[in-house]
């Protein structure tokens, strides 16, 4: 993916072959921007985005609109719909094209998805009053229910306290590989990468400075940031 947003230039080739790819980098390196360009929420010039055999955006300017990208997005603040119950949050995507399921069927599937994420008991609750970890699961269930071709997670653990973070990290590590195809995970914590991701891409000022497995990065960190991120000096 090559994309320019305003005067910010992203030059990123993610090339995830399924599995979870971690996107790391200092603040302002373009991680969230990259996710939003992938999701189609940001207009980017010269963006070339392919997911599997599907071209979501071509350098020639063809762009698949957000609603037809089949991309699941879990933003940093989770972005839950405050006016809907947990069940209706999760079922939201099934009410829209191409699914257009009847209410009972939507709810049944949403309930199954919540149970797959071990939080079926949340279904009838309003989103207000959910803990950070609970919100995260609901947002994940909502993103996964439409079976997206690509899942985007923006700092899914950043807003959680240390204890919850550990348990959610374990939980994501267990469930993400079975629940979804390719996934891009933005994080600033090397422990997330160790637990969840198979590969790492390091972004600095909109450019990829290094990519590979954690071991490959540790063997030869390409920049001060990479060394610091990995804790090797």
């Amino acid at each position: 993916m090559r994309a320019s947003v305003g005067d910010f230039v992203l030059d990123v080739s993610l090339g995830a072959e399924g599995g979870v790819l971690a996107l790391v980098g200092p603040n302002g390196s373009g991680k969230t921007t990259a996710l939003r360009v992938l999701a189609g929420a940001l207009e980017a010039e010269h963006a070339q985005i392919e997911v599997g055999a599907r071209v979501l955006a071509s350098a020639a300017g063809d762009r698949v609109p957000m609603e037809r990208r089949r991309v699941g997005y879990v933003p940093q603040g989770y972005g839950l719909f405050g006016h809907l119950s947990v069940l209706d949050n999760v079922a939201f995507g099934l009410s829209l094209r191409p699914h257009r399921l009847a209410r009972a069927e939507r709810h049944a599937r949403a309930q199954r998805m919540l149970e797959a994420l071990h939080c079926g008991e949340l279904a009838r609750r309003p989103t207000r009053g959910l803990s950070g970890g609970e919100q995260q699961r609901v947002a994940l269930a909502r993103a996964l229910i439409t079976e997206p071709d690509l899942l985007l997670l923006d700092e899914p653990l950043a807003a959680l306290d240390a204890t919850t973070r550990r348990s959610v990290r374990r939980y994501l590590a267990e469930h993400l590989p079975q629940l979804c195809g390719p996934c891009v995970l933005v994080t600033h914590d090397v422990r997330d990468v160790e637990a969840i991701a198979e590969g790492v891409v390091v972004l600095e000022r909109g450019r990829v400075v290094q990519r590979g497995s954690l071991d490959e990065l540790r063997a030869a960190p390409a920049s001060d940031f990479v060394a610091e991120f990995l804790g090797v000096h």
Binding site: G72, P75, R142, A143
Partner: peptide
């Protein structure tokens, strides 16, 4: 972000406005 999520779930711009922003 709530509108971006609604769009990625299949809502058109108008749909996201009517079903998320308005309520």
């Amino acid at each position: 972000d709530t509108l971006i999520v609604a769009r990625t779930l299949g809502a058109s711009p108008v749909g996201a406005f009517v079903r998320v922003a308005l309520p």
